[in-house]
Computed example of a mutant assay.
Amino acid sequence: MEQKGQIIKSTILPSPSQVVPSQLSSRIKPRILIVGIVQWARQEVYLMSAKYEFEMCTAENREQFIEFCRERYQGVVAIYRNNVTSDVSQRIGKFDKILISNLPDSVKFICCYGVNYDTIDINACSNKKIMVSNTPDPVYNATADTVMFLILSTCRNAFAAQNNLRNGNWKFGLQRGTNLAGKTLGMYGMGGVGRVVAKRAYAFRMKIQYYSRSRLDIGTEAQLHAEYVTLNQLFQTSDIISLNLPLRPDTTHIIGQREFSQMKRGVIIINTSAGGLIDEQALVNALESGQVASAGLDVFENEPSIQSGLLTRDNVTLLPHISTFTSDTEYEMELLVLRNLQTALNTDKLVNLVKEQNVESLSDLFSLAFGGF
């Protein structure tokens, strides 16, 4: 059995009848369909297979998946969905209204790997009485590390400096960077990731301010050394702006030409949350005009496609969506999906029920992960 930290080449889990024949009983086990892969927590799945029947999705495309839902997947109670690293999930596509309507009536839970779940029609799930969960907590530290890396890279002009060095130019023609100490970091959204970023940024002696529809309590603000400001104040006074919001219809292109024009000239933009938050063409225009001095991006509007205007600029640090791309984080995320599955099948509840299905809770998912957005 592979251990955590090893890359597993095979993405097909053995069936329970192959794994633990001595533990099988005559009773019917709850069926779990894995749409995607389990890469790091395979040992935990092995142990869980004594109580639950796991089935790997083998559909070659969306049409075949819907066909299997009418026959092969009848009786499935819960779905483990990984749409981040899985070719299977990419071939099947979004869990939109049409696909949700074709899921077997036995499906009661969809447990997602990842924070964002914009590829799932939550309303359609709710109408079909399907509960949905995600995995916010494990991503906080890894994402905050990526935010700080991008801040350091953009402030110190590290990408251009590296290119200069590799091209044999040393520091010739290189623009000087700027220190982090004393700079104002504006957090647009102050949830789980934002709070970890704030602690790291304070260690660099940065001034921290934030805007969120849900203000933190005074005690938490004091602990984070963070000041609550209006959105206009955030735009006008921040040297660096980090986006920490979920992607939803009401947050798509929440940063565009109008917002860039309101910001301090020479502002630095950091985005590790969701590419669709920014109108990328507007960002390119702002970079060309100098309104935005630099940008650090881990996510993109139409990834993996990226605007050529971003690719050709050496004052932009680009990462291929790697904020949670560590074995430690991915293992923790997989464990949380499995915990959600176990809790769901044992208690009919989910550990991380998504906000739209938990409207009565004031401390719901997005309040925790994104500061109320």
Rank of each mutant, 00 (worst) to 15 (best):
N82W: 03
N116P: 05
K108C: 10
Y117P: 07
D118R: 01
R91S: 12
V107I: 03
I79K: 00
N102T: 07
F109P: 00
S89T: 07
R81G: 04
Y117C: 10
D118Q: 11
R91Q: 06
K94Y: 11
G114Q: 07
D105K: 15
Y117E: 06
N83R: 13
D87F: 02
P104D: 06
K97T: 13
Y80F: 09
D96H: 08
A78G: 05
D87N: 14
V115L: 13
A78N: 00
K108Q: 09
D105G: 09
S89W: 04
V115Q: 06
D121Y: 02
D87E: 15
R91C: 08
N116D: 15
T119Q: 10
V115P: 02
L103A: 05
D87A: 14
S101G: 13
S106Q: 10
Y117H: 08
V115R: 10
N82S: 11
R91W: 01
V107Q: 01
V88D: 11
F109E: 08
S86V: 06
Y113C: 06
P104M: 01
D118C: 14
S86C: 08
G114V: 01
V88S: 09
Y80H: 04
C112A: 13
S89E: 05
S106I: 05
C111Y: 01
P104H: 15
Y113W: 11
I98R: 07
T85H: 15
D105W: 09
L103T: 07
F95M: 12
S101W: 10
Y113F: 15
T85F: 10
S106M: 13
V107L: 08
K94H: 15
S106G: 04
N102D: 04
K94M: 13
I92W: 00
D105Y: 10
D96K: 12
S86K: 03
Y117W: 13
T119K: 10
I120P: 03
D87T: 13
